[in-house]
Each structure stands twice: as structure tokens, then as C-alpha cells.
Amino acid sequence: MTDRILIIEDDARLAAMVGEYLAESGFRVTAHETAADGLAALKREPFDALILDLMLPDRDGLAVCGEIRAASDIPILMLTARGEATDRVVGLELGADDYLPKPFNPRELLARLRAILRRRKGAGPANGLRFGRLEIDRGARVVRVDGEERALTSHQFDLLVALAEHAGRVLSREQLMDLLRGEALEAFDRSIDVHISRIRSAIEDDPKRPRRIITVRGAGYVFARSQDADGADR
């Protein structure tokens, strides 16, 4: 069944392009330029997800988000200009499911939209980690890039989770071993570098020039906190 998406975005040309792009991926998209029209449409018709711009001509997107969330649990993806880190927090506090700064990578928009739809339909509360286009679902033990599943062994998945849960910290091989203690340990020992290399093949765009799992010479590995177009804002 096709998911119906409502876009409330004052930039009609952008909304039209997003609509066309999402339609190519099998969504049915309706766009409105004002909060009033969008809210009216939301009352009139059923939608599966909402893409909401932060700055609307008639109202503040955050207030609109709060109002919608008070009445419905429709997944909401907020679009805003990058730079105001607090907006992200406030947006999520007000009930938005995710947030994407403009200008965004359309593929990332698609991936995030699919993720919030999946989360709503799926098994209750999210147990996922998201880094740009990369999504780690700890509950389902699945890793996706651009919404597409990538194959990892169970050990590799554990290693990836250990790294990702400490994103932005350099972890030595010993620290990684400690973190994985209790898991099936024999698979690791000295072959940790080999496993890292396998994980890279699965999740890196260019495994030869890794951007997600980075080697720090003489120190260990670091899982990048800022990935893809996230920029310096995360």
C-alpha cells in the first residue's frame, strides 16, 4: 500500500520537487504552502507522515508541530535551515520524529522518511542509532544505509554497536575487547582489524577512504559522530 505524505512547506518549488522525488519512490504526496491549509488537509484526509517546514508564512512550524502532536501520532519530519542546534532539540521535544537541515541530501530525506514510517508501523519505541544516512537498529539487529539493509555477521554487528555507542571517542583495541566481553569473544581477539574492515565494506561509501569508522594511528578506532551531510551541527 502506498504511503500518503503531506508536505507543509512555503517554498512551493521545493515542495514540488520533493513531491516528484518521493513519488518516484512510490509515495503519494500532497503539498500545502501554509500551516492553515496543511492543518485543514490533515483533518480532512488520512496521511501516513508529515514533512513540516520550520518557517511558514502564517505560523511558526514548531507551534504547528506541537499542535499536531497533541492531536495525532502521525510521524513528523521537520525541515529547517541548518545552524540552530537548539531547534533540533526543541523540534524533537515538541514531538517531531526527526529533523533534517536544509539544504539536505534528497537520499537522506528519503531514508529518514522511511525510517520514521517504519518506526511507527514497527515494534514500538525506537531502539536505533542514526548517523546521517546510516541507521543502526539495535532491536532488530539490522544496519541500513539509505534505508537499505547491509549484511553483517552477529559479531560484526556487536562490534559496530560498541563503536557507534561511543561515537566521537577513540577506542583502543583493548577497550573494544572490554566492551565486547560477554559476547562471543573468541571471534575477536587479534582479528578485530579484519572485522572492522568487513564492517567498512558493508557501511562505507568508499571502504578505502572510510568516513564512518576511522583508524587513529597508534590509538585505535573512532566512530565518526558527524557523518554524511550532518555537518558540524551534530
Binding site: 517554498d11 521545493l14 520537487m17 518557517m55 535551515a81 545552524g83 539544504p103 539536505f104 541530501n105 537520499r107
Partner: peptide
């Protein structure tokens, strides 16, 4: 500044979208 940021990013977002398409 917030408006300028938003106004500048809207065309950027459109261009980014268009390039992808």
C-alpha cells in the same frame, strides 16, 4: 539573520534537489 539563513537555504535546497533529479 534567521530569515537570511532560511531564504538563502531555500534556493540551495532547490538546487540540491534539482541536481539529484
Amino acid at each position: 539573520l534567521a530569515n537570511a539563513s532560511h531564504e538563502l537555504r531555500s534556493p540551495l535546497a532547490r538546487i540540491r534537489m534539482a541536481v539529484e533529479m
